[in-house]
Design a protein around this nucleic acid. Sequence first.
DNA 1: CAGCGTTACGGTCTACGTAAAAATA
DNA 2: TATTTTTACGTAGACCGTAACGCTG
Lengths: 298, 298
Amino acid sequence: MRLFVVLAEELHFGNAAQRMFISQPAFSRQIRALERCLGVDLVARSSRRVELTPAGQALLPEARTAVESVDRIRHVAQAQIRCVQGRLAIGSIGAEAQQPYTRAILAELRARNPDLKLDVCSLDIAHHVLALTQGEVDVAFLLSPMPPGIETLTLATGPRVACLPADDPLADRTSVTLAELAGRPVVDVPPECPRSWWNFWAVDPRPDGTTVRYGPVVHDVEALFLAVAHGEAMAFLPGAAQTFFPRPGVHYVEVSDAPPATAALAWMAKNRTLPTINAIRRAASAVLQRTSASGPGG
Amino acid sequence: MRLFVVLAEELHFGNAAQRMFISQPAFSRQIRALERCLGVDLVARSSRRVELTPAGQALLPEARTAVESVDRIRHVAQAQIRCVQGRLAIGSIGAEAQQPYTRAILAELRARNPDLKLDVCSLDIAHHVLALTQGEVDVAFLLSPMPPGIETLTLATGPRVACLPADDPLADRTSVTLAELAGRPVVDVPPECPRSWWNFWAVDPRPDGTTVRYGPVVHDVEALFLAVAHGEAMAFLPGAAQTFFPRPGVHYVEVSDAPPATAALAWMAKNRTLPTINAIRRAASAVLQRTSASGPGG
DNA sequence: CAGCGTTACGGTCTACGTAAAAATA
DNA sequence: TATTTTTACGTAGACCGTAACGCTG
């Protein structure tokens, strides 16, 4: 079942078997067993070409959702284990983990709950929402907007910068407008990433109504920087990227008229009542109140 | 996994094992293996009481969806087999299979496609929508309204009747109003049946804004008639029930002011293009055109 | 011939059922 | 003490990996 999904991606028994860490004959037998079990041929194989039959194509999305749901079971089980162990899995996208507010919240959380174990991990562009929805992490420091089912607490708001190749005519400006960037392709993200989220980050559609042309798909920020440095496309990032991600061949220019970006602490709405999640929510609220109180005063 | 779902329903190892057609020790071992595999205890068992742990409760819905999606795989595979074999699985709820338009459509379909094999089965109240969405049947003769994702072709529209216990003061009337029926509990349906569908059939909320009180849950029409005959609740049915379901202790009375009911041929929107489904759609359209053409003329 | 999928074979691991034991109210 | 879950044990089937085979371009 999972093997079938992998085979559909690879269209090659040897490679697929390797990905699943079993020998190729074993893989072949499993697929054949699945076909016998279901009563339909799923893949048409000649020893030179492997392709899905119509039945295989029809079954592929169903198989995918089935595999996803058993993955979800594992993740939810892990979340339950963490819950009884007093553990909290925290994810963070890009440079959010290094931001002052994030560090302050984690410090506050540790101070308030000395027995709470924190598992912090970084999330890449492709999977940050999946990590939350599938329960791989309990909470995450992310960038809005989040899709329905995810609740957020706004942590900070700031300008966005354009991420341009060094040889772009605009690369050395101190500020640009969306109109000046019109026509430049924007790095794309894989389909498992919610479209609405990336549309916001690509400013698609633009204020003038035009839609964005997309460049190569990247799965993480380093791939994004490589794509930009190669001149294949541009990207929009939160202003903090400027200081946290200096990269050769990549210049940052503030975009004066893009809607501001919002950093947020996010969690699944259905998990709102979990004690560990409540703990970090309270810690975050405390830090925000303290900051806003001291801000005008200092 | 599936065993866990069954155990959660039965809360009894022996009964659950029997439902799964394996011995009780084997069942017990499987559950324990699942717990070891996930790393969490799912059920708290004393030899007198079996109950779900919090982790088990959290995992139960996920396990359910996982089981459902593998069931869907089997059903979609069956649909594919039918497709290559030139078979069409047709479902029908209540008396729809016996209605003249249904019989005419099936006759037309057989006449146009002599090689097409038809598998007709009846669907009960609880599962008629699931049978479509999970691919157990390709098309179905149902009663509107259908939830999104299901397309319909309207076949007939007619008044609704109240289904009342024989000793109800209104049971021998020729016509009643919703206002006269106010306060009477209505038979309920299990949760796997879309709420919007049953709300329509229970006329909930009523035109005056009041909500309906529900009686016992029934899974099929015969259970519905028993509940009504016992005086536990009333029900609303299409007028045709009057002639097709004479039952002791059950009287039918036309409801003068209930919105009319619509019988329809239904299929999954995503399957619209399948040749077998197209065939029955065309047959149905032809029958409808012929009927409407001859109607005014005769 | 070279690459790739399939079949053959020997060994291990899982999972069943029956029967006996342990645990709880 | 009675009901229900768990452990013990012997067997049948599933699955893996290595190696040999067959097919296609």
